[in-house]
Design a protein around this nucleic acid. Structure first.
Length: 271
DNA sequence: AAAAGGACCTGGTGGC
DNA sequence: TGCCACCAGGTCCTTT
């Protein structure tokens, strides 16, 4: 569900509320997420102070004195900050309660997300060690994406959604960035030129930045920390708009299944 | 080594 | 109203 803008929106809301706070209790109602939630979390995490909250790709990292809490929201996960604490509803799997009585509640119907504890350096953790650059950092350039693509026959859409190439570009924003760049999602990654990649990188940064400013995209059940939906859906050009007129040229937006993901594009604007 | 497909889950929607 | 097929924001793992 959440892509980078949603996770970054969440992080920005969590920072003022939780940095410096002390954990008093962890309640695990359902430990069967993508990987089992470690039992030790309930014993080890209370008593620790959240020093800083980081994001890497779509992972949130709560830095504490003795390690890091790693959270990924998967497809349907969300976090709510409750004060006072309300009674847990269906799929409210984990509560992290703080000494000031705030409760950070993890909700995830499909349970594709994860909550893990990392006691050593998190950047060496297998889930994080091989991730590509952050799309909004200067190290993510058209030159980089072009060079990495040489010899690759995979469709460019799948290529930019591969977290080993660049993190944080999920299905919505891959569709949107390719539309803005005028690149057809089916084109082979290795056959796209340097200047097109420069434009694509510019568009990826632009669409992610704008989505963050709007508090993310809400399609179904995504909500921000306080339970409000994000507003970026109002700015989507192609995603979810099959058959509608392209905002640029009026041709109907095409829908196509690519792998297990749906693609939306304008075959007139995207070559 | 790279690409494709399956797997993990629940819930909502639309057709019959 | 019920049943069924299909769809959904992710990504690791296995197979080809």
């Amino acid at each position: 569900m959440p892509e980078l803008p949603e996770v970054e929106t969440l992080r920005r809301a969590l920072v003022p509320a939780l940095e410096g706070q002390w954990v008093s209790q962890v309640i695990i109602r359902q430990s069967r997420l993508r990987w089992p939630v470690p039992e030790m979390l309930a014993h080890h995490f209370p008593g620790q102070q959240v020093k800083r909250i980081h994001r890497r790709g779509k992972y949130l990292l709560f830095e504490c004195c003795q390690g890091y809490l790693l959270i990924h929201l998967g497809m349907s996960g969300s976090l709510r900050l409750l004060s006072p604490v309300s009674s847990p509803q269906k799929h409210d799997h984990i509560d992290i309660i703080f000494r000031n009585h705030q409760c950070l509640r993890y909700h995830d119907p499909r349970r594709f997300g994860c909550i893990l504890w990392i006691s050593e350096s998190p950047w060496n953790h297998p889930l994080l060690a091989h991730l590509g650059p952050e799309p909004l950092e200067d190290s993510f350039t058209g030159k980089y994406l072009y060079q990495e693509a040489q010899g690759r026959r995979v469709a460019v859409k799948n290529y930019i959604m591969d977290a080993h190439q660049v993190v944080g570009v999920g299905n919505i924003y891959a569709n949107e960035a390719l539309f803005l760049a005028g690149i057809h999602p089916n084109r082979q990654a290795g056959e796209i030129g340097r200047s097109a990649y420069q434009k694509l990188v510019k568009c990826i940064k632009q669409v992610l930045q704008k989505a963050i400013e709007q508090g993310g995209t809400t399609l179904r059940d995504y909500v921000t920390l306080t339970g409000h939906p994000g507003d970026f859906k109002n700015f989507l050009n192609v995603y979810g708009r099959a058959q509608e007129a392209c905002v640029r040229c009026g041709h109907p937006v095409q829908y196509q299944k690519m792998g297990q993901r749906s693609s939306y594009f304008c075959s007139n604007c995207q070559k």
